[in-house]
């Protein structure tokens, strides 16, 4: 089953996401800050990354996503957003931020699973 990395500074969100994903049979690794997040992705090469937009600094998630893309990590990325729309950064995926999907918090388990499945199917057709 696919390996998914979840990076968010809120440990409860990490826990909740892991619960949902493991229940569906995915393997999950987590990190609660961008540095550790970068490390686990580099070492474990997950099949999918879930990333929160805002961590310690408002744009931590954006920068980390950009860093992955710059270093040629082609792993699909889902971004958790909380105030994205309210902040006027109503981004279409891939436009401003190099990510594949957005999920608005609070995270509904159905949406999360739905988007994860779709992205994995799209990226790993073969």
């Amino acid at each position: 089953m696919a390996l998914i990395a979840v990076i968010d500074d809120d440990n409860d969100i990490l826990d909740a996401s892991s619960l949902v994903l493991t229940a569906k049979g995915y393997e999950v690794i987590t990190a609660d800050n961008p540095d550790d997040g970068y490390k686990i992705v580099k070492e474990k090469k997950p099949d999918l990354i879930i990333l929160d937009v805002m961590m310690n600094e408002p744009d931590d998630g954006f920068f980390l996503a950009q860093k992955f893309r710059k270093e040629k990590f082609e792993i699909p990325i889902i971004m958790y957003t909380s105030v994205s729309k309210a902040l006027g950064l109503e981004f279409a995926a891939g436009e401003m931020v190099p990510v594949d999907e957005f999920i608005e918090k609070p995270i509904s388990p159905d949406t999360l699973i739905d988007k994860v499945e779709k992205l994995l199917k799209l990226h790993y057709k073969e």
Binding site: A16, L19, M54, S82, V83, K105, P106, I107
Partner: peptide, 22 residues
């Protein structure tokens, strides 16, 4: 935004429980 953070965590947990993940 600070207030929203804990509330969304609570909402996510409730969803998980309600959808019988546990």
């Amino acid at each position: 935004h600070e207030i929203k953070t804990p509330i969304v965590a609570v909402a996510s947990y409730i969803d998980i429980i309600l959808q019988k993940f546990l």
